[in-house]
């Protein structure tokens, strides 16, 4: 820009790749719209206010998890412990918020805690697990895939031990109302997710921490040489992710009115898939919050739509899998085009 450039030195790949980038960035919004309209035309029930509210409520929890995973993905890692952390924290928060008169209470003589306490506890536990994940990845240099796979198994173990593999039910109404209620027609869950989205967006785009995340994902060695403390930053990334899973766990318990040790199965994969569909690069350094939101919505609209259209549960799995592979294949194409 400040150049006295008389020669057309601009590399040829520039315009085409920028055009491609613009296209592929907007392509996901188009896909969401097309998906939404097509399913809506095929079945009127899909567009009903209650169904859309339902999609949004489910998406809200998924969105929080996906935002957590996204930090790990952008820094060239991953977090496979997400789903199980959601399960553990769902169980813990649920166990502390059972109705006083419920027959199968985990803690018999538990006083009526303010809702916020168990939710904060869930976030805290998630954060601690995240710090452990992050430390293993950052300081012990264990590949994130392995570190968080191990953590996934460990956390599942704890969830089983904690619940004795019994479902936790009879949650207090004030807690479940948190998920079912709304303010000015906007579901509480959507509101909470929106706040989280705003916070993460701000973090990724306007803070030093955010810039460091993208730098580490873009080139960890260059980040280190530039004086970025890579290890502590990674620990923060995984801690943040863990905290978000904790919040998601508590909200999931509230939404479903209970929790079991088998909650959260494959949630991490759905979250990773949603991020990837939303343009978060599996090779690190790239990913936008708007993309992640769209990715989650595409995933949930599709899931819900397939149910409404009466597609069998087994075929739903097949279709979702195909979508994941297609998304990553496109993602990789983008990367090739730049060479």
């Amino acid at each position: 820009m400040a150049s006295t450039n008389t020669k057309p030195k601009t590399k040829p790949s520039l315009q085409t790749s920028e055009l491609k980038a613009i296209l592929s960035n907007n392509a996901i919004y188009m896909v969401l719209l097309i998906l939404f309209l097509t399913i809506g035309i095929l079945n009127k029930n899909f567009l009903s206010l209650s169904n859309i509210g339902n999609i949004l409520r489910i998406s809200s929890v998924r969105m929080i998890i996906a935002l957590g995973v996204s930090g790990a993905l952008i820094t060239r890692g991953t977090d496979l412990s997400a789903g199980r952390v959601v399960a553990l924290t769902a169980c813990i928060s649920a166990s502390l918020l059972q109705r006083p008169d419920y027959a199968y209470k985990i803690y018999e003589n538990l006083p009526n805690l303010p809702i916020i306490l168990p939710i904060l506890l869930a976030i805290l536990i998630g954060t601690i697990i995240g710090i452990i994940n992050g430390s293993i990845v950052a300081y012990l240099k264990v590949p994130a895939f392995i570190a968080t796979l191990g953590m996934q198994v460990i956390v599942y173990g704890f969830a089983c031990i904690y619940t004795n593999a019994q479902p936790i039910g009879g949650l207090r109404d004030d807690f479940t109302n948190l998920a079912s209620g709304s303010i000015f027609l906007i579901p509480n869950l959507v509101l909470i997710a929106a706040i989280i989205v705003a916070v993460i967006w701000f973090m990724y785009n306007h803070t030093q921490f955010g810039k460091y995340i993208y730098a580490i994902g873009g080139n960890p060695s260059a980040a280190e040489v530039s004086g970025v403390k890579v290890e502590p930053t990674l620990v923060k990334v995984y801690a943040l992710a863990g905290g978000l899973y904790g919040l998601a766990g508590a909200l999931l318990a509230a939404r479903t009115g209970g929790a079991t040790n088998n909650y959260g199965l494959m949630y991490e994969l759905d979250a990773i898939a949603a991020c990837t569909i939303g343009g978060v690069s599996t090779s690190g350094g790239i990913g936008r919050v708007s993309g992640i939101i769209t990715g989650v919505l595409i995933f949930e609209v599709l899931s819900n739509g397939l149910v409404i259209l009466g597609v069998s549960a087994y075929w739903q799995q097949v279709i979702k899998g195909i979508i994941i592979i297609t998304a990553v294949a496109f993602d990789i194409r983008k990367y090739f085009a730049k060479r």
Binding site: Y214, A215, G218, N219, S221, A222, A223, E224, V225, S281, G285, I286, K338
Partner: peptide, 9 residues
């Protein structure tokens, strides 16, 4: 390339 630039940024 390997320790200087962040190519995608």
């Amino acid at each position: 390339r390997s320790t200087g630039i962040f190519p995608m940024l």
